[in-house]
Structures are given as C-alpha cells and as structure tokens.
Amino acid sequence: MLHLEQVTKIFNKGKPNEVVAVRDVSLEIPRGSLSVLKGPSGSGKTSLLGLMGCMSRPTAGRIVVGERDVAKLPERFLTEVRRKTFGFIFQHFHLIAGISVLENVMLPLYPTQMPLGEIRRRAEGVVDDLGLSARKHFAVQGLSGGEQQRVAIGRALINDCEVVLADEPTAHLDTTLSEELIGILRRLHGEGKTVVIATHDPLVYDRAFVQQVIEMRDGRIVPA
C-alpha cells in the first residue's frame, strides 16, 4: 500500500536552523496491515507519518501510494490523494474549536461534490458509531480528551479512507480511554483498513495484534 524508498526530510534546508528529521528511510506498509512506528520524542515518527500521508514532500527519495509516486506530484493532486486515501488522527486532536462535533466531522467533505444532506447523514452515522450522538451539537472544546479524540477519529473516517494514520493517539488519554481507542483502531483494521500508528506508548506497540513494528531513532529506522 505504501512504499518508501530512501526518503529524507530536511526542514529549513540551508538555514542556520536546519533539521534533518528523516534520513534515508526505506520501508513497506502492506495493504490491510496494522503497523506501529515507535521511538522516543524527536526520533522522526511524526515527520515520517506526515510524509506517508502526503502532508509534506520529501527532500529526497520516493514515496509510492498504491501505484502512484507522490513525491513530485503537484500540490492539487497531492491534496486529492490525501483526501481520498488517508484519514489522520493527530496527537493534539487538531479539531476546529467553536464549531460542533458534527461540523468537525463533516469538514473533510465540504469541498467535495457530495450534497450537504448526504454529508450530514454520513457524519451522523460516524458520530453514532463512535458513541457521540448525545454530544453531536456540542462545541468540541467542551468535550473531554477521550471524546475529542473520538471526534478526531470520526473526522478521519468520514471520507471512507483506505489508510488511517494516527500520531501518538494515546498521548493525552488515561489507560481506560487508551484501551477504548486501541479497540476502535483494531476495529478499523478488522474492517480492512491499513492502520499506521506512531507512538512511544508500550500499551500500543507491545500488543499481539500489531503486525509490524518499525523502530526509529534520530530520523533513521533501527534495524530489527
């Protein structure tokens, strides 16, 4: 599903604050797999996840999504790949404050050709599945951390993505909520989605259902 070949990402290249976030990384994420990127803070997990999800372009190397080399795609096509293929769950949720749960979940589909009524119906379905029906008209900033994380998951799932990318999804959750979240990610995997989780939480990576653990340190993959 995802193929990375000698990928390097340098932020602020050529400037005094230049940072090499990912160095010469090659890896393969099979379709329908559940993989974990593990490593300490600053090891390059989030940057690599961003590169996989077309959130940024590599400074060097190739990234193939499905059959398509996306490393040099024009911005417009890259956005299309991002919208149709990936669903993101961010460490800090990154919800839009001030609007409701339902509106946050609907956001990815606003710029599509789908009618508003259909978007609303689909979002309500997702919100119901995640147990947030009673809160669907609440402004998101009033929700608990666990609920906000579920809204973020709902937003990631609304476009029926093939790949779910989760960045430190348990970082702000207690053990119970973390288990609940892991359950949701396992369910998505069970439904055939490819799931990639960046984490340094053993509650996530030390689990039998994880099919592939990729360890990172200083922007490189640590050989197994």
Binding site: T79, P108, P111, N159
Partner: peptide, 16 residues
C-alpha cells in the same frame, strides 16, 4: 494558520 493547516491536512485544496 493552524486552522488552515488542519483544513489542508484533511483534504482541502488551496483553492478551497
């Protein structure tokens, strides 16, 4: 800025 980044990340194009 963060909101624009979020919207881009979830699939909004620059034109959107």
């Amino acid at each position: 800025k963060k909101e624009i980044g979020i919207l881009k990340a979830i699939g909004w194009e620059t034109s959107d």
